[in-house]
Design a protein around this nucleic acid. Structure first.
Length: 431
RNA sequence: GCGUCGGUGGUGGAGUGGUCUAUCACAGGAGACUGUAAAUCUCCCGCCCUCGGGCUUCGUAGGUUCGAAUCCUACCCGGCGCA
């Protein structure tokens, strides 16, 4: 993997670049489509590509449970398995530590509302008895499968082994995404754990890269790993995934900066992370400062991925503050649930007023959905619970988001970033 | 015509003397969703409302009762059976 910065946004951390992977180039900043279970929900790869997507992100936890990382490996890696010829990434399962752990069954998610009363509780209330599917252990996390209840223990080493089997171009260190509900003491404790796990992830990664391609080093697999005969089969040989470390630290400036420094400096025999993820569950108001603190410290020449973000306004914020990659479930999840992006804000297509609206979602949008279907028809598909509804809405939403990020990229190249930002946000928030 | 069963909110269908504006589902309305436990979830869904409550409802009209969607009578409507 190689990253080249082509242009910088003046007086900011922003930049335009090209990330070269074994499966092609990614022009950054870029939006990464989420394909958790080796599919971008409701879309085939051709539709994903036509929506402007350059790279797809799968998930370690989900693919480990189903169909199993060895099957993906034997299929030729995640890209070949899902018939996606472009670049791929896999997330480490660190987010599931959060979403299936403290956030399980609760109204806590990636973005916390500042009005959450829980955030005002000063001390960490003990709810360790609350039902959850992920529990943090000594050196890893035990997961209770949401599919069948079976128990799995995932360590940083295990996550990396799985990801090598999944065979994406870019993989992530195993981390702990913390809840903003946690107090400072817990954030510190979790951060230290994430740093330890980062080092172990990198170490395992290097070990796998250095080991003979055909089999795992005998006797050195940990008790939780599945010893296998061969490594991920690269689609075109020369399989060398890049590993990104993940910065955490909650909403604390000191922790964020400390984390950025430590993650940037972690190395195993002089080998560092190839890029960085910025993780965590934020209050929206805290996000830009957190990103800025971190990116001021991370080495400029390596790519940075803001994990799980975001909404249209988040891209301007992130890119201005030095983020190169974003991924988010929103375009596809919102699409499937009937919410559609437009440059004048989101609309809920099932609303009564669209039942007889015979215009496309956006008259000047070049996506397949807008070129061929009316709001009335899409509303009809949703009301009728037809599968095509989620597909058409996802196509538009993905197109909208990828092109928004592309436009921001162009605006940096053309030195019109701030004008474009102002114009877009004015329209987007006008409704 | 006689007999019989039944008529409940937009629909289907519970309820068969008080806890009934009436379970539940569907339809309808609005909203949420940020490294996907998610084609999911939440709320509303008689009228009025100062959101605490007020008022009117279970084919229609009477009646019994402290109290009726629930019991009685008549009528109207529908299904079925017999003429």
């Amino acid at each position: 993997m190689q990253f080249k910065i082509e242009k910088k946004l003046k007086n900011s951390l922003g930049r335009v670049g090209v990330l070269t992977t074994p499966h092609g180039e990614i022009k950054t900043p870029a939006f990464v489509a989420v394909g958790t279970k080796a599919t971008v929900k409701s879309l085939n790869p051709e539709q994903v590509k036509d929506a402007g997507v350059q790279v797809v992100l799968g998930n370690t936890y989900h693919l480990y449970l189903q169909p199993g990382d060895e099957i993906v490996r034997d299929a030729g890696g995640i890209g070949k398995f899902m018939n996606w010829s472009g670049p791929t990434m896999t997330d480490s399962g660190g987010f599931q530590v959060f979403s299936l752990g403290v956030a399980y069954g609760k109204d806590i998610s990636k973005i916390a509302k500042i009005t959450d009363s829980s955030l005002l509780i000063p001390e960490r209330f003990d709810d360790s008895d609350a039902p959850r599917l992920a529990k943090i252990g000594q050196d890893g996390v035990s997961f209770k499968s949401h599919l069948d209840g079976s128990i799995y223990y995932i360590t940083p080493e295990k996550s990396i082994q799985i990801q090598h089997n999944l065979g994406a171009d870019i993989i992530f260190a195993f981390d702990e995404c913390t809840s903003p509900v946690e107090d400072l003491k817990y954030q510190e404790e979790a951060l230290e754990r994430t740093h330890r796990w980062a080092e172990r992830s990198l170490k395992e990664h290097q070990k796998l890269l250095d080991s003979p391609l055909e089999e795992y080093p005998k006797g050195e697999v940990d008790e939780f790993s599945t010893p296998s005969r061969k490594r991920a089969t690269p689609q075109e040989g020369n399989f060398k995934p890049a590993l990104f470390g993940i910065v955490q630290g909650g909403r604390e400036k000191s922790l964020r900066k400390q984390s950025a420094k430590i993650i940037a400096e972690i190395n195993v025999d002089g080998k560092y992370f190839d890029g960085f993820g910025i993780g965590g569950s934020f209050a929206k108001e805290d996000m830009s400062s957190a990103v800025k603190w971190v990116n001021e410290i991370l080495p400029e020449e390596k790519p940075r991925h803001l994990l799980g973000i975001g909404e249209p306004e988040d891209f301007f914020m992130g890119i201005e503050n030095g983020v190169d990659l974003f991924d988010c479930v929103l375009p596809t999840r919102l699409g499937r649930n009937g919410t559609i992006y437009t440059k004048f804000g989101k609309i809920i297509i099932t609303n009564t007023k669209f039942r007889n609206d015979f215009l496309p979602i956006e008259k000047d949008c070049e996506c397949y959905t807008c070129k061929n279907y009316t709001k009335s028809y899409i509303a009809h598909l949703f009301h009728g619970k037809e599968m095509l509804a989620g597909t058409l809405a996802s196509i538009h939403n993905l197109y909208f988001i990828t092109h928004l990020v592309d436009n921001i990229r162009e605006s940096i190249i053309n030195d019109t970033f701030y004008e474009y930002k102002k114009e877009f946000l004015q329209n987007y928030k006008s409704r």
